[in-house]
Amino acid sequence: MPTGRTRADAGVAAPGGRVRRLPRNDPRQYDDLADEWWQPDGAFAMLHWLAQARAALVPPATRPGATLVDLGCGAGLLAPRLAGLGYRHVGVDLVRSALVRAAAHGVTPVNGDAGAVPLADGCADVVAAGEVLEHVPDWPRVVAEAARLLRPGGTLVLDTLNATALSRLLAVRVAELFPGVPRGIHDPRLFVDARELIRECARHGIALRVRGVRPAAWGTVRWLLRRAGVSLVGGDAPRIVPTWSAAVLYQGWGAKQG
């Protein structure tokens, strides 16, 4: 979820089918698409798949009252994937319409900027930063906040888009050609170089490991067909799988040194 705005106008479908012109990465796009959040085959379908993959990196809570702080939580898509792990789930986001939906799924909502979180130092056993770093104008500031929020030994988990020509091509120019993919959600100027992210995390005492991931091909094809109105029965649910290259989309995880 974004915490800042950049220019480069993009058309976004608003309620009632109308289209309004908004800058790329403008948070108001999420208000226009608010009803799509919990639609499995909706505009945010891939965020569901990524939430499942991100949750797989979250370790079970090791103490009573453990807290997971979810930066850029959106409508709380991570919440059902954390069931049984033992965390109080606190979600931080700028978009109030998304937080209303997150609260309905058991998330404690905090309206705020991921780069200036109104929570105490060391309050989190886990910080999740899923699909947020590529939406902020100052991602090192968000990394610093994540480290501040983490208690010693706490875990950071994240996923984001790499700052490569291939990523800009596939995640923006190609992706936005497909039906059902929101136009203007990403500003490619904000994508995050994986090597720089590793170095920045190290500065804050977090030894981040990264790996490339991608949507499973057949699941993605099935989703696109359903979005195009093709009726399909059965088949595997779409999911995110590891891949040999982190040049486009990648996950990161690591513990804060005590």
Results as ranks from 00 to 15, higher is better:
51 A>T: 07
57 L>C: 06
62 T>V: 11
73 C>F: 07
61 A>T: 09
92 V>Y: 00
81 R>C: 11
93 D>R: 03
78 L>D: 14
80 P>T: 08
62 T>Q: 15
89 H>C: 10
86 G>H: 00
90 V>T: 11
72 G>D: 10
57 L>N: 01
51 A>L: 05
79 A>Q: 03
86 G>M: 04
56 A>E: 15
79 A>D: 11
77 L>H: 09
55 A>E: 10
90 V>C: 08
64 P>D: 15
94 L>C: 10
94 L>F: 05
86 G>I: 06
63 R>E: 15
73 C>L: 10
63 R>F: 05
71 L>D: 09
69 V>S: 13
50 L>W: 13
66 A>Y: 03
68 L>Q: 13
93 D>C: 08
50 L>T: 12
93 D>E: 07
70 D>G: 12
80 P>I: 07
54 R>S: 15
54 R>A: 14
89 H>F: 08
63 R>T: 14
54 R>M: 12
66 A>R: 01
61 A>V: 10
79 A>Y: 02
60 P>V: 11
92 V>Q: 01
71 L>F: 11
92 V>E: 03
50 L>K: 13
61 A>G: 12
52 Q>P: 00
80 P>A: 05
62 T>Y: 00
82 L>F: 02
54 R>I: 15
88 R>V: 13
60 P>C: 07
66 A>H: 08
66 A>K: 10
92 V>A: 03
63 R>M: 10
75 A>S: 13
81 R>K: 12
51 A>C: 11
74 G>P: 11
94 L>D: 01
76 G>S: 05
75 A>Q: 06
71 L>E: 08
56 A>S: 13
61 A>D: 08
67 T>L: 13
51 A>M: 08
70 D>Q: 08
76 G>A: 09
90 V>M: 07
74 G>K: 01
80 P>W: 00
93 D>H: 03
87 Y>N: 04
64 P>F: 02
85 L>Q: 15
87 Y>S: 09
52 Q>I: 04
59 P>T: 00
72 G>K: 10
91 G>T: 07
60 P>I: 08
50 L>Q: 14
58 V>T: 10
73 C>D: 09
53 A>C: 05
69 V>E: 12
58 V>D: 09
53 A>L: 05
86 G>F: 00
52 Q>E: 15
78 L>Y: 02
92 V>W: 00
56 A>Q: 12
65 G>M: 06
80 P>C: 07
74 G>N: 05
78 L>G: 06
93 D>M: 09
94 L>H: 04
87 Y>F: 14
74 G>M: 04
81 R>F: 11
82 L>P: 08
78 L>H: 02
91 G>Q: 07
55 A>C: 11
59 P>F: 01
81 R>S: 13
77 L>C: 05
59 P>H: 00
91 G>F: 03
80 P>E: 03
72 G>L: 12
76 G>K: 04
74 G>Q: 06
79 A>F: 06
80 P>Y: 00
84 G>W: 00
69 V>L: 12
55 A>V: 09
94 L>M: 11
65 G>L: 09
72 G>T: 07
69 V>Y: 11
79 A>K: 00
94 L>P: 02
52 Q>S: 13
83 A>I: 06
63 R>C: 13
52 Q>T: 14
57 L>M: 14
57 L>R: 11
94 L>Q: 09
88 R>H: 14
64 P>A: 14
70 D>W: 08
87 Y>C: 05
83 A>T: 15
77 L>D: 05
93 D>W: 02
64 P>Q: 01
68 L>S: 12
68 L>G: 13
84 G>T: 05
71 L>R: 01
